[in-house]
């Protein structure tokens, strides 16, 4: 009952924020024109079907892909954050903590730095896929590496895994720094632009490229929810109850890194969503992953859409990097949770 209310509220909230996101922006476009353009695109029209020229272009070519990218990236970060925390049995775990983000960023930076050198003949769309796959591969490889480093007698030890994650993070960070140092001015610009995190580069092309990378984890991860619940008591509990713990682990890591890698590739590193959203979800309706995973996806989409709106509107005509907004929104709430649940988190 309570959960139905949460689902409904979040869905409605997401729809409303998508509408606002489409209607608001530096361009003042009358709401009537917004509705007109959108309904027209859907094949019917409420008001006149007059040509709105550039306004129509702004809605269809700028705002709509950007909003969709926000929804997709938010969904990806929310759900994979929840899944990773489940595997690590620690509500403080985050994709960036395990080295997933660092691995994705390193691979993406390498691809950007050597793109013209090696793959000059690639088309735009193929370039996006390359970047997304590269980031996915980088994320996956680091996650597996951290995981294997931390294996003791066939069992993954969580604290070792987190420490290994820190080491890998430092390594990947240093290599990323080295590559950025060696890159020329021109490349450096696109790398820094990308490191700050932004949805400003959203086009139909990269949104459609991102879509499958988010869809597969969103559909797949909830099937692993029970296994993740059992992981909360102990890794071998899944086995004792008749599930295959290794399969669960590998599937969760693959699906989560797929989502994180692809979103890092199109929008850069947007922090705190993967950490914060699952926390909020648990506060709302408990820790059962059958609830946490889908709701984290929904809430991630909602929060990132809102954060992007803030980043676009707050310091017009310029826009803030979205990572700044999510960190500003996220850290106080995170600290609050930390202080409140200090004792619980420590054991």
């Amino acid at each position: 009952m309570k959960r139905t209310v949460i689902y409904t509220c979040l869905s409605v909230g997401l729809l409303v924020s998508i509408c606002f996101s489409l209607a608001l922006g530096a361009m003042r476009i009358p709401i009537k024109e917004v509705i007109d353009t959108l309904t027209h695109a859907m094949g019917f029209s409420v008001f006149s079907s007059a040509d709105h020229g550039i306004n129509e272009g702004v809605i269809m070519m700028i705002r709509l892909p950007r909003t969709l990218m926000g929804v997709l990236v938010g969904t990806a970060l929310g759900i994979s954050g929840a899944a990773i925390q489940g595997i690590f049995r620690n509500p403080l775990a985050e994709p960036s903590l395990v080295g997933i983000s660092a691995g994705a960023s390193l691979m993406a930076v390498l691809i950007i730095a050597f793109e013209t050198l090696l793959f000059s003949s690639l088309s735009q769309l193929l370039g996006y896929y390359l970047l997304a796959f590269g980031a996915f591969a980088g994320a996956g490889i680091t996650a597996m590496l951290v995981y294997n480093l931390s294996k003791i007698n066939g069992q993954a030890n969580v604290s070792t895994m987190l420490l290994a994650g820190i080491a890998i993070n430092a390594m990947a960070g240093a290599l990323t720094g080295l590559v950025t140092y060696l890159a020329d001015e021109q490349k450096l610009r696109s790398i820094t632009f990308w490191m700050m995190g932004s949805l400003g580069g959203a086009t139909w092309q990269n949104v459609s490229c991102l879509f499958p990378f988010v869809l597969i984890p969103v559909v797949g991860l909830p099937f692993l929810a029970k296994g993740l619940n059992l992981f909360a008591i102990g890794e071998n509990q899944a086995e004792l109850i008749g599930l295959n713990p290794n399969r669960i682990k590998i599937l969760v890591v693959v699906l989560a890194t797929m989502a994180v890698g692809a979103s890092v590739a199109v929008s850069g590193i947007i922090g705190f969503i993967g950490l914060l959203i699952p926390h909020l979800t648990r506060l709302l309706g408990g820790v059962d992953h059958r609830f946490v995973l889908p709701v984290s996806a929904l809430m991630g989409a909602l929060v990132l859409t809102l954060a992007d709106m803030i980043s676009r509107l707050i310091v017009q005509p310029i826009e803030l990097p979205i990572g700044v907004v999510t960190a500003l929104m996220g850290t106080p709430i995170f600290l609050y949770i930390l202080i409140k649940d200090k004792k619980k988190l420590v054991n």
Partner: peptide, 10 residues
């Protein structure tokens, strides 16, 4: 290099 497409388009 931080700018908004929409602000420029406006």
């Amino acid at each position: 290099r931080s700018f908004s497409i929409e602000s420029i388009t406006a």
